[in-house]
Nucleic acid binder design. Structure first.
Lengths: 147, 147
DNA sequence: GTTCATGCAAACAGTTTGCACAATA
DNA sequence: TATTGTGCAAACTGTTTGCATGAAC
């Protein structure tokens, strides 16, 4: 696989010929209407059911551009990429329900100070960090009565 | 892909017929001699050069078992799984050099308290969390004189 | 008319699996 | 000998890419 989810660089050059791509719009809409993570394939399936269906390849291309532009965030879950609309500035942290894939963003960054410490202690130039909590949300944890 | 890196369950049943698998030994040795992350394929390549080469499938199987047994840890880097020997109890956090893939374990867990807070605030049963810092280590950051 | 997004299908790459064989208890 | 690990190759699956086509400037 030649994924490079998260690489920047095109951002500027892409601005030149922007054409309000319908693919990106559709993807953003789909993810906007959804409070949990979606993989590219899931986005594709959802879009197929709408009035403006797009191909899988288009979904992948749209998603890539959107991530580069900072409008989407990627979360890698067990080897597969999931996407969600980026929440503001840095909010890179989440509570992720492993069952329904719902994502609850965590406000702020609780490890900024730690990052600084680590950076200087280990002479390590930290580009970014990943902090996500995985488990089961309240809804999914609900004891099912039909047993 | 049907990866399920990290799932437990086989652990017990596997104990039954254990036979000191040469594959697992080899993989553990390779990772032990290496201070950075290795993907399954990289482990495979390294092992091919030794006196006890093993097949790719075996590497995957060994790695899976070892993760289940808690002897290895998985780190997902841009869609690919990388492995390292597990450092003791919980040390699930790392500084990862994106260039040489070296991993510096971070002592302790700086987000335990946060996890408790989040768990109760959001009524979320947190199973585990991922906290890793990515960047460039001191060595790789060294200005190269030959320019 | 030129440019760029799209769709399709083929190509890729990482991973898993089935099966025959080998090795260990 | 029975059991389980191993190797090989084929199958799978998520992702990328090339190319022809269509839409937007």
């Amino acid at each position: 696989m030649k994924h490079a989810q998260g690489r920047a660089m095109l951002s500027q050059s892409k601005q030149i010929g922007i054409r309000q791509t319908k693919g990106q719009q559709a993807v953003l809409e789909t993810l906007g209407n959804c409070e949990h993570l979606l993989s590219a394939q899931e986005i594709y399936v959802q879009l197929r059911a709408t009035e403006h269906p797009v191909g899988l390849a288009t979904v992948y291309r749209a998603v890539e551009s959107l991530v580069v532009e900072g409008k989407l965030q990627t979360i890698n879950l067990e080897g597969q990429a999931y996407y969600q609309v980026a929440q503001g500035t840095h909010s890179r942290h989440h509570l992720v329900c492993l069952q329904c894939k719902k994502v609850i963003p965590i406000a702020g960054c609780p490890v900024g100070e730690l990052e600084r410490q680590l950076s200087s202690r280990h002479a390590f130039a930290i580009d970014y960090h990943v902090l996500d909590f995985f488990g089961t949300c309240a809804q999914c944890d609900q004891p099912v009565s039909e047993d």
